[in-house]
Design a protein around this nucleic acid. Sequence first.
DNA 1: ATCGGCTCGCGCAA
DNA 2: TGCGCGAAGCCGAT
Length: 472
Amino acid sequence: MASSTRVQPERVRILRGGEIAPGPVLYWLRREQRVHDNWALLYAQDLALAGGRPLGVVFCLVPSFLGAARRHFEFMLAGLHSVGDELAALQIGFFCLRGDPAREIPALAASCHAGCLVTDFNPLRISRQWEQAVCARVEIPVHLVDAHNVVPVWLASDKQEYAARTLRPKLRRQLPRFLSDLPAVRRHAYPWLQDVARPDWPLLARRLRAPVAGGALAWCRSGEAAARAALAHFLDERLAAYATARNDPTTAGQSDLSPYLHFGQLAPQRAAYAAAQRAGAAGGADPAAAAAVAAGRDAFLEELIVRRELSDNFCHYNHDYDRYEGLPAWGRRTLEDHLDDPRTHLYDLAAFEAAATHDSLWNAAQTELAVRGKLHGYLRMYWAKKILEWTRDPAEGLSIAIALNDRYSLDGRDPNGYAGCAWSIGGLHDRPWTERPVFGKIRFMNLAGCRRKFRVDRYIERVQRWTQEDSR
DNA sequence: ATCGGCTCGCGCAA
DNA sequence: TGCGCGAAGCCGAT
């Protein structure tokens, strides 16, 4: 069977080799929960078209996943619901299974006599384990597609990068080849004819075993359509101010796209391509406005591509990405020099989770995280660094920061979160600074710095307003 | 308001 | 082997 005509071969890794057998192509959808701008779906469709076969998509719902809360599952299920509807309209089969993917995926592949299995790339350990388990239980080829990174993670670099500055030039060299528009998925010429039971979405929601944590997520509607609207809104309304406003938690200066990127409802490459198109022309006759758009675009692309793909690089090449042992050697060394330093305050997970520290800014940040399911980028650093400062040792601090981020943040359980916690607490991708108690040479942050950057009282009031709205 | 120093190690130039 | 420089800061000097 011929290979893909629309997807570059460097995007694809063969997890299990062999001849593609007769029978439909099955795409096991995991991280990229969208129909459009999805290289893995396009690749699976190309394989199916080349062989004249039907195409099916399967998602396997795991009732409990890395500490995710009920509202995360509800957000995800709402998005998957529209994915299923759109695929049906394209004559592509859609299954939403429930249980252990290591059992469910091979069972489905066998029952529909699939000739090939395609899945999307995710660097987290649990994803690799599922891949291995599935490969061991099927007799057909399994192909893995990096549909998340603009430059496929294994092509961008063959090792864990030391810092953004070592990855940046490697990405830049490859971007002309990869930062392109994406082709449209087609109505599939060979319809999926076998009976597909429409997922019983309300039943799936009722059977979840996820803990209830945090408030409702009124600010962020789920789904591909909402994601595209949010991108358009950001590019139209906020891009010009992004370079200057994104580090001020009292203004709406951030893109607010991370939930969509995390759940795969928005393709990073779509966002990057759209932002790159917003060249100086946007300002028209006004050179200052054009310069602001260009600065916003550059800052956004730096975060969207360089820093996000750096965190995929970290988790892909460092299997201790969420543990103390995964921190850089100089960071661990200097933290260990200060293990016996007295701590000014000590809290456990429950006290942090209850936002019951002595610091009203920290409590407000934790409250924002709990109520809204997101924490402003600048405050997220302060938040994590204080957890390091107020726990008995850095390993405990790291695990508390990760646990809270995974439980509350809509974009938790993502390489971004693990890299962010390791940056704040262990100096990952950072450099050493003046030595001081507890932190050692890890970059320090404090309230005075926040006051210099933004109106701390205004931020705290803002969070209190959200809390009142939420309780109503 | 602005500036330099802090401190490690990567990667490139020589 | 030497050297420049870096994921978002802090602090004290001017």
